[in-house]
Design a protein around this nucleic acid. Structure first.
Length: 259
DNA sequence: CGTGTTTTGTTTACCTGAAT
DNA sequence: ATTCAGGTAAACAAAACACG
């Protein structure tokens, strides 16, 4: 740093005998003290700066968990504005109702947001949304990353697959794996049936897996009652473990036992 | 033997930066 | 846009320690 260089004794000193000698040790000590102070000041500046830029990011983290998994935040605001314009009598589609519920949750989660929208100018608002979104998406990324490892180990323990699932590699999962396939198989089909299994793996028209059916892993004991498809739904151990891993903590998931 | 205190270790949330 | 590796700090619990 410049401090150390400028304080170094220069070669052409007019009269060296006039300077009062201090011990190198005490000089070094003072220099260290000065540098320490400097570090403190720099640290404080940095913290303050970071807090400002980080505030919205950290506030945004919860959004994907408790408001909406994918919907852009702006869309929620826009829908709320639309409602205000049209009034409560204005009719709306199911999708719009869905957005509005999202907005209400968002307002609950971030109570300060409403005022901010009113008082910030468009430039600042855009900046705020960008940060909220960054926090929201990176939190989701963290969740999927931890779940990627955890789910693999859970399935290994729960289902004892013949070839264990690697926790660091998502290849060889899904329908190619027998254990995963059984869990992912739509509830109304039987994974035991070789025709079903082959049909799903080959993506035969009759066995296209879609979002219209619940996978087996969402049911209690991973088995659905064909006569009553709602029985035991959402009661599976894996599902609860996943929930706890995200909403309480990763390690709390191991305590799940018929909750 | 308690009983406070320090050290050490673990877990978790959060951030950064880079690759894809 | 998503995924990934890595790293930091806070919070907490457990272990080790000194001391009357």
């Amino acid at each position: 740093m410049s401090v150390s260089e400028s304080n170094l004794p220069q070669a052409p000193i007019p009269d060296a005998s006039l300077s009062v000698q201090t011990s190198p040790h005490s000089r070094a000590k003072r220099k260290i003290a000065a540098l320490m102070d400097e570090i403190e000041i720099l640290k404080q500046d940095k913290v303050i700066k970071q807090r400002k830029t980080t505030y919205y990011v950290s506030q945004g983290r919860a959004i994907r968990r408790i408001v909406a998994l994918y919907t852009p935040i702006e869309d929620l605001i826009v829908e709320n504005d639309r409602r205000c314009e049209c009034g409560p009598s204005g009719n709306s589609t199911m999708a719009q109702d869905h957005l509005q519920r999202g907005y209400i949750e968002l307002a609950k989660a971030l109570p300060w947001l409403h005022d901010k929208i009113a008082c910030l100018d468009p430039q600042e608002l855009e900046d705020m949304f960008r940060k909220l979104k960054r926090g929201a998406d990176s939190a989701r990324g963290d969740d999927t990353a931890t779940l990627k490892e955890l789910v693999a180990s859970w399935v290994n323990i729960e289902c004892h697959p013949t070839t264990l699932i690697r926790s660091d590699d998502k290849h060889h999962r899904g329908f190619v794996s027998d254990a995963c396939g059984r869990l992912l198989c739509p509830a109304e089909w039987s994974w035991e049936d070789p025709v079903v299994r082959a049909g799903i793996r080959d993506r035969t028209i009759a066995f296209i897996v879609s979002e219209n059916s619940w996978p087996s892993f969402m049911y209690e004991n991973y088995k659905a009652d064909a006569a009553n498809l709602e029985h035991g739904l959402m009661k599976s151990k894996l599902l609860i473990m996943g929930f706890k891993a995200i909403f309480t903590s990763p390690s709390s998931a191991s305590e799940v036992d018929g909750e």
